[in-house]
Amino acid sequence: MNLERKDWIRALTAHPATVLNALAEDVTAGCDVKFKSLPQAGLGLLTLTDGAFHEPYYLGEFPLSACSIELSLSDGRQAAGGAQVMADDAELARSLAILDAVLAARFPGWERVSAHIESGASRRAEEDRRRRVMLAATRVDFAMLNNAEDDDDEC
């Protein structure tokens, strides 16, 4: 698994929340979970840089859930994890924070988390591919009327 930690959330959220919640429950079976910040659902404010003068402004809000946790194993090992995810689902943020910690510290069950990240990344890659197909299938080369070139025969 080659994905950096910053890419784990995008890959994991390609799976349904129910799958991630179940996985988080499984991998924390032998762990003590402490909240560094409680799971919370609310809103984030999206700041955009305008394309004309590069001034910041707020485009609007989006659902956001966040959580930070600390996992402890019976042998004393500890791992910190956290997640901010665009979803109105505090439980999902908790699960993602757990999965983040488990994989970062290679706690028991990390291989399953890694496998979910890989399969999620594949799903995201397929989404990206479909979007590129939309672009490629509609690439246009408008010709001036006095030019002979015509792209109508191209795919």
Partner: peptide
């Protein structure tokens, strides 16, 4: 198109894609 929504990771502080709009 879809704009990645970037927020800092609560542990590392590195910007992470939390979703897209």
């Amino acid at each position: 198109g879809y704009l990645p929504v970037m927020l800092p990771h609560p542990v590392t502080g590195e910007f992470v894609e939390a979703g897209e709009v």
